[in-house]
């Protein structure tokens, strides 16, 4: 038996009751903050190396900077992860994989755009084979540098944790729209949405 806020009482259907109860509880501050606390220390980035910033990502997971102390544990399968660190340039080919991986991840999920390339093209901004990461997936944290030092990556993770604790929702999904027509290559939308 359970009671809803709208004054309706439910009898018998345990499933509906429990679902209602869960959604009710989730809205309560104390439960929500507990969930956030859990999310905060289990930011598992998927192992998706997109470019050369990956070396600093590897160094950051290494012993000197040890991001595992922040609950940051690179993991293989996208289904078990909730964070993508886009490590630099995304090419047309890689953009598809990034989008697919992002779609495979369960919500809530966050994205850190690491490096100047992921922010807006960086040193390769005028290449005919690159796509800015912000046109592929919604981005929560932009992290500048080329490559950013591992400390900077740690800072980005801490900032993401803060925003989780403050109960900010992950960035909303973007419409993968047509990029400005480029001579030669097909538009990004076709490359990405495939």
């Amino acid at each position: 038996m359970g009671g809803g806020a709208d004054g309706v009482a439910y009898f018998g259907n345990l499933e509906t009751v429990s679902k209602k109860a869960v959604s009710f509880l989730k809205k309560q501050g104390y439960v929500k903050s507990m969930i956030n606390w859990g999310d905060k220390f289990s930011l598992w980035p998927v192992h998706l190396m997109t470019s050369c910033c990956g070396t600093e990502f590897a160094a950051a997971s290494g012993p000197r900077f040890d991001l595992e102390r922040l609950g940051f544990l690179p993991f293989g399968g996208p289904r078990q992860t909730n964070l993508i660190v886009i490590e630099g340039t995304t090419t047309l080919k890689m953009a598809r994989s990034v989008r697919i991986v992002w779609e495979q991840m369960p919500a809530p999920k966050w994205v850190i755009a690491m490096g100047a390339c992921a922010m807006d093209g960086g040193i390769f901004y005028d290449s005919y084979n690159t796509v800015p990461a912000k046109d592929i997936v919604p981005i929560d944290i932009f992290l500048a540098g080329c490559p950013p030092r591992p400390e900077a990556l740690a800072r980005a993770v801490v900032m993401l944790q803060e925003s989780i604790v403050k109960n900010r929702p992950p960035a909303a999904d973007i419409q993968v729209t047509a990029a400005p027509a480029t001579p030669g290559p097909k538009d990004v939308v076709e490359a990405v949405s495939k």
Binding site: L92, K93, D126, Y128, G184
Partner: peptide, 22 residues
């Protein structure tokens, strides 16, 4: 190297433009 559906012809030739001009 390039994606299978890349339509531009022969990127390294001089008449193939970059995305934006520097």
């Amino acid at each position: 190297l390039l994606p299978d559906d890349f339509t531009g012809k022969w990127p390294m030739r001089k008449d193939f433009p970059l995305k934006k001009t520097p």
